[in-house]
Computed example of a mutant assay.
Amino acid sequence: MTALETLQAEFQAHLLDQPQHFAAAVKLGGMGVERRLAIYHQAYRARLVETLQDSYGHTVTYLGEDWFESEARAYLIAHPSTQPSLRWFGAAFPAWLAERRPGDPDIAELAALDWALRGAFDAADAPVLTAADLGALPAEAWATLVFALPPSYRRLRLTHNTLAIWQALDQDDVPPAAEALGHELDVLIWRRGSSPHFRSLGALEAAALDGLAGGQSFAALCETLSERFPEADIASEAGSLLRRWVEEELLSFASRR
């Protein structure tokens, strides 16, 4: 490394409480060296904690500010910021919480929901498919039609009553006690207009969205669903889902193979 790169690396090591000799490179004068370095040391942590608090608002409320700050400060040591933008600093926070607190999966799931909603909020824009667009398609187009999901599309699989906890926190109510669900719950997250939304999914809709995400044509998707859910009226179910997705602005555009 160059002398400048070495100095920068030692300054970062100082901020992260790692062994270094950075203080020896600081010029004397005015405020003492240790006091001056302490200002940067604290400011660095405070800014990153603020970033996590902004990204994980409901998780902050759930844990309490002091407890969350303690977790955030431990996280920033384990996962130093590596991106030019602070927007991505908290990306590993839910997984890190899951490993750090395996006995409290509700905390990691709540954080994952916070992060997914933030991601949906500032995802790239995309054209929204409308009912008029569908109505304008010729009948023969449906044999090869492929629908695309928008950049804001996210999915989570939850094992606890995390949605109920999030909703209570969002209404400034006392959240229910964390409870394991009888089965895993698929959750859809996306942006409608300028606001992020989420809702739970049934098995058939979850499978249908998986097919769309995998690039299946609508016709092939219907065939797959018929095989997987032989007891269901797939023609009716698929029509209802398509209408709902269009109303919810969940399809970004259509193409033909």
Rank of each mutant, 00 (worst) to 15 (best):
F147A: 05
A13H: 01
P151M: 11
S152L: 04
L250Q: 10
P230C: 10
L169C: 09
A74H: 12
T6S: 12
E237W: 11
L137F: 12
W142C: 04
P102A: 12
L137Y: 10
A120E: 04
R199Q: 12
L225F: 06
Q83W: 10
G215D: 01
R154H: 15
A24I: 05
A178E: 04
I234L: 07
P84F: 15
E50H: 12
S194G: 08
S85D: 11
E109N: 11
Y40S: 03
E249N: 12
W190P: 00
R100G: 00
T144K: 15
S226E: 11
G64F: 11
A126W: 07
A91I: 04
R73F: 02
A91S: 13
R243C: 14
A25N: 05
L52N: 09
S85H: 13
Q167K: 11
D170P: 00
Q42V: 05
E109K: 12
P102V: 08
Q18I: 02
L4D: 04
Q171R: 15
D104R: 08
G103W: 07
E109G: 09
A203W: 02
E99P: 00
A164F: 07
R47T: 13
S70V: 13
V174R: 04
F93M: 10
E34Q: 14
D17I: 00
W190A: 01
A180D: 11
H58P: 00
A43V: 14
Q171P: 01
A177I: 05
E205C: 01
R155M: 08
T61G: 06
V60D: 00
S195Q: 15
A24C: 07
M31S: 05
A9M: 06
H160S: 10
F198R: 03
E69N: 13
L158I: 07
A116T: 08
A219H: 13
A120F: 04
L76P: 03
A43T: 14
H41P: 02
D106W: 14
P84S: 14
R244P: 03
L117P: 01
Q8D: 07
L221N: 03
Y62S: 02
A108Q: 01
A148P: 02
E247Y: 14
L76N: 02
V146L: 10
A203K: 03
F218W: 15
F11W: 05
A112E: 00
G32K: 13
L110P: 06
H14V: 00
L7N: 05
T224K: 13
E140L: 06
A206V: 08
W115N: 04
R155Y: 09
A46I: 08
S195A: 15
S200E: 14
D104H: 12
G32M: 12
R118F: 08
L16W: 09
L4C: 01
E71G: 00
E223G: 07
L15S: 01
R73H: 05
R256L: 15
Q167R: 14
R257A: 07
A9V: 00
T130R: 10
Q216V: 00
L137S: 08
A43P: 00
A46H: 08
G239E: 10
A136I: 01
S70T: 15
